[in-house]
């Protein structure tokens, strides 16, 4: 579904992503791991066509992000964690609906979709209130609904559980499970190894822009003969001098 092919991204002389190659199968949930500054967000931004690869290419459902960006964008929903970008002076419904319309949705289908999403995310109560007064978790839910409103085949989630409390995080995990059931392809980045193990079929571990590991957690455990997830992670990213 997504093929990353020898992708490099430079900012000036700084190499943020270095000759990265991996693929995500349709219906797969892939975890993207790496320390701060490893290049996870940059990679996802290139998939979402908001950044152009300096060299190499990425295809989404066969469409090139550099040459067929419009087709790619229609197939992608994205959610950037950290600071969730919402319009504070608009209500939750208006925020979601704006993006739905920008993705070309019809008004009827859109309003039904919003009702359905707000039920799933348990946010009906504050659907018509202005976002500026929302708590972190409430905003995060609105942002999730916004990224799913056009029912994209591919979902990119950059640290989606940052700032969510335990119950919101569990609502979110159930949502991921549902989306996987529905056959969506999901890429999500995280610093939480436990969460990644629970949700993902496979993981990609990046370090300083380079690919360090791609495969299932089970394979990872087997390769390094370690069971503790955090130790494993440290082994993979810290093992620079071993290779």
């Amino acid at each position: 579904m997504i093929e990353v092919n020898q992708v490099t991204k430079r900012f000036g002389s700084f190499v943020a992503v270095d000759n990265l190659t991996f693929a995500i199968q349709p219906g797969e949930v892939l975890g993207l791991l790496g320390e701060n500054g490893a290049g996870k967000t940059t990679t996802m931004r290139m998939m979402a066509t908001v950044l152009q690869p300096t060299s190499g290419d990425i295809t989404v459902d066969g469409f090139s992000v550099s040459r067929q960006s419009m087709q790619v964008r229609r197939r992608i929903g994205l959610l950037f964690g950290g600071d969730v970008g919402l319009y504070g002076r608009l209500t939750a419904r208006e925020n979601i609906s704006y993006f739905g319309m920008l993705y070309g949705m019809e008004e009827r289908a859109l309003s039904e979709r919003i009702i359905q999403l707000s039920r799933t995310l348990q946010m009906e109560e504050y659907l018509d209130r202005r976002v500026s007064g929302f708590s972190r978790g409430m905003k995060q839910k609105v942002a999730i609904a916004r990224s799913l409103v056009h029912d994209p085949a591919v979902i990119l989630l950059d640290e989606p559980t940052t700032g969510l409390d335990v119950s919101a995080a569990s609502v979110f995990r159930r949502l991921i499970a549902d989306l996987r059931q529905a056959g969506k392809t999901i890429l999500f980045s995280s610093h939480n190894m436990g969460e990644v193990e629970k949700l993902c079929d496979r993981v990609v571990i990046m370090h300083r822009g380079r690919l360090r590991f791609v495969g299932s957690i089970a394979e990872l455990k087997q390769r390094y003969r370690l069971d503790d997830l955090d130790d494993l992670f440290m082994r993979v990213v810290g093992g620079e001098h071993d290779e």
Partner: peptide, 12 residues
């Protein structure tokens, strides 16, 4: 506010 990133990822 970080809204621009989501906006430029839409097919507009």
């Amino acid at each position: 506010r970080g809204t621009l990133e989501a906006l430029i990822a839409t097919p507009v």
